[in-house]
Design a protein around this nucleic acid. Sequence first.
RNA 1: GCCCGGGUGGCGGAACUGGCAGACGCAACGGACUUAAAAUCCGUUGUCCGCGAGGACGUGUGGGUUCGAGCCCCACCCCGGGCACCA
Length: 814
Amino acid sequence: MVPNAYRPREIEPKWQEHWARNGVFRTPSDAGRPKYYVLEMLPYPSGVLHMGHVRNYSIGDALARYKRMQGFRVLHPMGWDSFGLPAENAAIKNRRHPREWTRSNIDAMRRQLDAFGFSYDWDCEMSSCEPEYYRWNQWFFLRMWERGLAYSKKASVNWCPACATVLANEQVVGGCCWRHEETPVEQQEREQWFFRTTAYADELLGALDELKAGWPDRVLTMQRNWIGRSTGTEVDFAVEGSDQTIRVFTTRVDTIFGATCLILAPLHPLVAESGFAERGQRMATAAATKSPDDLEKEGFFIGRYAINPYSGERLPIWVGNFVVMTYGTGAIMAVPAHDQRDFEFCRKHRVEIVPVIRPEKGELARADEMAEAFAGYGVLENSGEFSGLASREAIERMSVYAEASGFGDASVTFRLRDWGISRQRYWGTPIPMIRCRSCGVVPVPEEDLPVLLPEDVRLTGTGEAPLRSVQEFVRVDCPQCGGEARRETDTMDTFVDSSWYFYRYADARNDAAPFASDRVADWFPIDQYIGGVEHAVLHLIYCRFFTKVMRDLGLIDWDEPIRRLFTQGMVIRDGRKMSKNLGNVVSPEELVSTYGSDTARMFALFAAPPDRDLDWQDEGVEGMWRFLRRVYRLLDRNAGKAAAASSKALNAADRAVLRKLHQTIARVTADFDTRWHFNTSIASIMELTNEIYSMESLVSDGVMQEALQGLSLLLSPFAPHLSEELWQMLGREGPVLDVRWPVCDPDLAREDSVQIVVQINGKLRDRLRVPKGLPKEQLSARARETERIRTLLAGKTVRKSIEIPDRLVNFVVG
RNA sequence: GCCCGGGUGGCGGAACUGGCAGACGCAACGGACUUAAAAUCCGUUGUCCGCGAGGACGUGUGGGUUCGAGCCCCACCCCGGGCACCA
């Protein structure tokens, strides 16, 4: 008889079609079962699935299938982050409309995802570039506008000359654009729309504690740093010869008697006012394009003085390239004796250094002997009435004093800034605002939503907003006075789209509201979110912000959208991240056509634990392919055997196979429930397969059936097509997704004897097999009896012996 | 500079609570089957010494705790990532 071969190219499409026809992936609706929401980060529809996607979605699908087999009703949706720059660039290059280009990419990618057999419920699909979705972006914008959470202001913005657009602070990486890492970001003044993320700064920070249980520490730390809360004092310094004051923020007001000058950010208004506008501008640009490491501390004196409100001293006002306008007040007091940066600046520019803090146990430093600043807390000296106080207490008392005297406040400053969402781009959500000559800024009335993105637009790739040239779009009657008015022509940052998309999945076809509250309440919070760590601060802060806004709008009644977050590692090949430029990409489509998707999925999970970077090796794929074929052959030979529920006594091989089966069930189940090390899950399934192979001719038919059924089910989260095929070969009814996950029988899994290691002084000297659970005394006695140990211990005194049941005995001899 | 990860055979990785280091897989080598190849199956494979039984060494480096350390503590080196003149 010629054995049948494993032919994934036949069985995979067959089962995909079967699943689709029978609606197997549709979200179960029976309210009796507990819910589980598994979410993977939605892709940008570039048209091509890459290995990072495959890894991400293989993890998510394994979990979704496992949970479903455990009896949960699982929501497992997928959608498209389909607005964004690449569509516009492609349109310019290929003369195709972004919508057409995007939609055909989505179709292509949906096909690729389906070719992997991922269990998505496509009935929940959303795509952010469709008006059915983006109208709700506009709706949220209007709600925020009403509450003062959306506002416009003229602001100095980050401008990327390569993208020809404004970037959010989060999109600036080391002074350069996140997409064009070689292109320095420029500063420009523009009227921009902002979301007031800072209104929730304290809450976004405080709630991180609640997320500890389910989020990686790394992400929490990154968010904490990003929000960057620091407490301190704001102090006004009067400018000599004017009624102006300069406000500075400091965390160390206790050092203020050691302040020897003020330093302004190059873009501080007073710099321009004092006639140094151009010089300041130049300095700001130079500083923005260099990393802090190789930026010399430059600066200049503007010829004016300010008065220290505590000491009455007269301090020269400088401009410094290391002072940033966007943090605190854009001005600092320099205390060179107690701040290393100030120290370097003042040393270089020959500004006086005045120590005023001495270490708790030590002398006040002498200015001319200092090699570096003393930045620690200590005791105040030469600080007027505050002398003698410890730093901590002084900070408190001096803040109170400032407030009482009316020249300052205790204050809290955040690094987090409001989210600039305006983009001078076509392919995004139109901002639903109108500017009227007589009424000013007027929101588009809700009944006029959506503000549709016009289809006929000339895209040039230059800096102006493309919508500006579409007269039918721009010209509009003012909703208030009916007069001539103009629409806002900027579109929204695409991060707005992805800030709430996962709510839409729960009620994707709602055309009266972004979603119905009861439907999202049924599914939220997301039980498990899976994606790349690169979104730790952008997307994952914005979506938390949106949830808090939605809560305050009364749409939902929870504070955080995501209970558990999992960040998978990158896919690496030849020691570097896979990328087209490096020419080291592996095409998932090719893998599917050579080996089938089950092999690709299994290997993506087997090659490394999912939270670590994965080193891609083609030979490894080959090995996985061999394994699946081996499984198939095993089933092909044995599937026909009778599943007799035999009362016959089990032979030794039967017991061994059943033991391995139930041990494997326990291991795989534990991996799902705790640490997600699917590499070890799969390794243990391989061991089970090896065990069945080696016992193939010895086990009874009933046990063989039982083992093969178990094997098929254990494989199903990882290799669903093969699993479904095997299940059918075994004569069982599918779909496997609706079969209950196997349960470990501890009696069958138990080993009846264990190997014990016998050590002398910690060195391995012998092994012996004893019944499991043998108590210490007997263990020790048995260990002394073996011939090797008897000889080795002869004539020696055992000073001490350590017995660990089921593991080892260690004799300590003198 | 600060904050996270990580460092284990030729390679990817395993060792879950301090208890046999190297599971599982890859690669390599030897063998079986074959006219041959592929596929498959069986076996060997941390290093060194030894004909052998066996022994010594071995988880980035140096120290420590312990009957016992890949795992805990201290100091340091290297790789990856994040943050960064944040006042």
